[in-house]
Every structure is written in structure tokens, then in C-alpha cells.
């Protein structure tokens, strides 16, 4: 019983991190049909900022990370993605890979390949006992962060003019523009939010691992992206749901697979994703096919 509870706790905690990354990717996919594979590198950049600000107070570190995530996202949008706004999603995906490759090598050329230890958020690594389950403090913070961000985003999307414009833009970008929604503002604000989420992800990620290398972002970004694919592109709740589902499935596989087969956990997981794509290219939590077909 305790083992089951522990597995559920682990599923929720890893699922919330995937959900956060998935939301960062889905926000941008929603408004411009861009699969931002450079998201992992944005996250890594914020962690490097934390590394450079290691002698500063925690508040400075957090503000610095947020600013870095937001500024980098907005700059990438302006330089790499805006010229491709009318290109096909595939071309934009290739461009995103190019950005990711460039940033990774820029980190390699400036900071170097050796792992850097980052103390930001290290206090969160402490294990707390919640009844029968042991969870590190960062897991609790991750869950809280998901809830806060979902509530804040929802308020923004429902109440503010820009947010309503953003929802309109993800329904039909051209029609929204005809009705006076400013394309540049909508897309920029999506990147601002996505960059801020990247900083939160960076903080949570490094509080769990404690180190950063230029390639630390690849796996989290891929998992976040898989979460978006599972849940469904273009809808924030669907993406977040995909993140939690991915966390749950990973834990279930971990729990039920015999020890010999554990090394194939990821292979089974990704095969499932592949079959899901063939069966339901639009994702599990989205009904219409139109969201994918529009380009």
C-alpha cells in the first residue's frame, strides 16, 4: 500500500514537471503552430544565469532567471521565428532545432562542456515526510507551481484583452487579425509567458539535479514535447493533462515491469507514443482534427 502511495506521489511530482514544460511548449504552438524544440535550451540558459549569480541573494537569482528566460524567448522569436511566421510547421520545427543547436554550442563555447554545480534551490532537495510517503520539497513546490501557473494563465486568458486575443488567435489566426488582434503582441506575450515558465522549470530542474551542462535541456524538452503530443497540440489543459499522463504512465511502467525489462521502459513508452500518433494524430484530449490541419 505504501509502495502504491509512493508511486502515486512520484507520478504526480514528475507529471507536474512534464506538465509545466508541456505548457511552455503548447502556449507557443497554440498561437503560431511552432513546435519549440529550443525550449530545453531556454531552460538551460536560465540555469546558467543562476550559476553566474551564485553569490547573489535568492531573490536576485530568481528575478535574474525570470528575466533571462523572458528576454531570450522574445529575442529568439524576433530573430528566428518571426521571419518564418507564414512557413509550414515543419520548416519552423527545423528552425527550432537550428536554434537549439546554436544555443547548445554557444553554451559549449562560452561556459564549456563540464558540469557546473548550481546551488539555487538546493534547499528544496530536502526530503519531507507526508504521512507514509517521502517526497522531496521540490516536488511539492512543482505541484504548487503548476496550480499557480494554470490559475494565473486561465485568469489572463479569460479576463484580459490580450488573453482573449490569444485564445482567438489559437482558434483562427487570420480571422483574429481581421478583427483587430495584434499578431505581434499576441505572439510576443506567448513567448513572454513561455520564457517565464522556462525559468520556473529551470529552477525546479536544478533544485533536483544540482548541476547543469549544455545538453541538460534535451531530455526534459523531449519529454515535455512528448507530453504535448500525447495530450494534444494547441490546447493548454490538454498539454498539461498530457504531462500528468506521461508522469503516470512512466511510474506505472516502473511499477509493473519486471527488473530485467526496466531498461526498456523508455522504449515501451515511446513506442506507445508512436502508436498514439498513428491512431490519433491530434492527441488524446482534443476532439477536432482541424487544429492540426490548419497551417
Amino acid at each position: 500500500m505504501d509502495r502504491t502511495l509512493q508511486a502515486i506521489a512520484d507520478a504526480i511530482s514528475s507529471g507536474s514537471l512534464y506538465a509545466l514544460i508541456a505548457m511552455g511548449i503548447a502556449l507557443i504552438f497554440g498561437v503560431m503552430r511552432l513546435v519549440n524544440m529550443a525550449y530545453g535550451e531556454t531552460v538551460v540558459a536560465t540555469i546558467y544565469v543562476a550559476y553566474f549569480l551564485r553569490d547573489q541573494s535568492p531573490v536576485v537569482v530568481i528575478v535574474g532567471m525570470l528575466l533571462a528566460g523572458i528576454v531570450l524567448s522574445v529575442v529568439i522569436e524576433r530573430l528566428a521565428f518571426r521571419p518564418l511566421r507564414n512557413a509550414s510547421p515543419t520548416t519552423m520545427l527545423i528552425a527550432a532545432f537550428a536554434v537549439s543547436f546554436t544555443l547548445q554550442n554557444a553554451a559549449l563555447a562560452t561556459v564549456g562542456a563540464s558540469p557546473r554545480s548550481v546551488s539555487a534551490g538546493s534547499s528544496l532537495a530536502e526530503v519531507r515526510h507526508l504521512g507514509p510517503v517521502d517526497v522531496p520539497a521540490y516536488s511539492i513546490v512543482t505541484v504548487v507551481a503548476v496550480i499557480v501557473i494554470v490559475v494565473a494563465l486561465r485568469a489572463f486568458l479569460v479576463k484580459s484583452t490580450l488573453g482573449i486575443g490569444m485564445r482567438a488567435a489559437s482558434e483562427d489566426f487570420d480571422a483574429a487579425r481581421l478583427l483587430g488582434v495584434r499578431a505581434n503582441s499576441v505572439i510576443r506575450i506567448a513567448f513572454v509567458f513561455s520564457g517565464a515558465i522556462a525559468a520556473v522549470v529551470g529552477y525546479l530542474l536544478v533544485s533536483a539535479t544540482g548541476v547543469v551542462t549544455p545538453t541538460s535541456g534535451t531530455t526534459p524538452a523531449l519529454l515535455g514535447f512528448i507530453a504535448v503530443v500525447i495530450g494534444g497540440m494547441g490546447s493548454l489543459p490538454a498539454a498539461a493533462g498530457g504531462g500528468f499522463l506521461l508522469g503516470a504512465v512512466t511510474q506505472i511502467l516502473q511499477y509493473v515491469l519486471p527488473t530485467d525489462a526496466l531498461v526498456f521502459r523508455d522504449a515501451i513508452l515511446f513506442s506507445g507514443v508512436l502508436l498514439l500518433l498513428i491512431w490519433r494524430p491530434q492527441g488524446l484530449f482534443i476532439n477536432s482534427k482541424t487544429i492540426q490541419e490548419r497551417a
Binding site: T90, D266, Q292
Partner: peptide, 18 residues
Amino acid sequence: GLAAGISTLAFLLVIYSV
């Protein structure tokens, strides 16, 4: 389109994990 591109990426991930 995009679904095809992503499915090929999933294929690579399967091969890499195996």
C-alpha cells in the same frame, strides 16, 4: 505534415532507448 515529422522523431527515440 507535422504528425509525420513527429512520428519519425518518436521512432528515433524508440531506437535510441533500445
